[in-house]
Amino acid sequence: MAVIKALIYLLVYPGILFLFVYSTFCEWFDRKLYARLQNRIGPAYTGRSGILQPVADFLKLMFKEDIVPENADRTIFSSLPVIGLAIVLTAGLYLPLWNINVSVPSFNSFQGDIIVVLYLLSLPTLVLFLAGWHSTNFFSTLGGVRVLTMLFGYEVPLFLAVLSPAIVADSWRLAEIADFYQKFPFLLLFQIIGFFVAVVALQAKLERTPFDIPHAETEIVGGTFTEYSGKKLAFFRLMTDVEMVVGSGLIATVFLAGFSGGVFLGLLKFILKTLFVIAILSLIKAACSRIRIDQMVIFSWKYLAPLAVLQLLISIIVKGVIQ
C-alpha cells in the first residue's frame, strides 16, 4: 500500500502529472492576466478561452525540428533540458501538499527540506548557465554569463527572506512551518517585508521582466535559449513553468501558511495561494521595463539584501519576544 501511495505521489499527485497540468494552467493564467493588464485578449482559441494554449505550444514544440549546433557538446547540450526539468519536478515533491503527517517525518517531509527545496531551485539557474555556455553561440554565452551574474544578486536575499519565517517557527521543515503559522496566523504580519523580497527575488529567479536580462530578446536574441529548439526548448519552457509553480508554492508555504486540510481543501488552498503569488508576479512583469545587468546587481545589494537582513532582524526579535 505504501509503495502504491509513494508511486502515486511521485507520478500523479503532486508528482509529474499534476505539476505538468498545473504548470500549464499557471502559464495560461499568467499570460491571460498579463494580456488583460495590457488591455488585450490573450490566448483565445485553444480550449475554453485559450486554456489549452500552453499545452498546444508544448506539443507543437515537441514536433518541431530539433537542431544541435555543430560545435556543441552533444551529450551535455541534449541532456541539460531533461536534467533541469527533473530537478524542478523533484523540488515540487517537497511541497507539503499531500501524504504529509506533521508529527512524523517521512521521505518527502523532514527537518531541513526547506533548504533542499531552495537548493533544488538554485540548480536550474546553473543548468541555464551550462546550457548557454555549451551552445557555443556568442549570444548564448553572454546570456549564460548574465544568468550567473544575476544569481549573485538575488540568491542571498531570497535565502534570507525564505528562511526568516522558519526562524520564528523554530523548524527547518516546511510542513511544520506551515503548521506553526496555521496556529498563529498573526505572526505572518511580521513577515510582510520578507514576502515582498522573496517575490521580487523569485521574479529574478524566473527571469521575468524587469529581470529578463539573460534572455532579453531585443538585446541578445534568445540569450541562453538561442540555440535551443524543438523538444529541448519545450522542456526548458516546461521547466520554467514548473519552477514558477514550485517557487510560488514555496512562498505560499512559508509566508501564506501552507495548504492544510486534507486532499481537496489542501488542493484548493494550494491553487488559490499560488495563483495569488503568480498574480503579483504578473503585475510586476507588466509594470516594469527591463533593467540592465549592472542595475540589477546594484538593486539587489542596495535594496533587496538590506531589506532581507532587516526581515531577519525582525524575525529574531519576534522570536525572542514570543519565548
Binding site: 495590457q38 488591455n39 507588466a286 521595463s289 527591463r290
Partner: peptide, 8 residues
Amino acid sequence: AGFDSLFM
C-alpha cells in the same frame, strides 16, 4: 527597453 505594457 523590455517595457511591453507601455508598448501595448
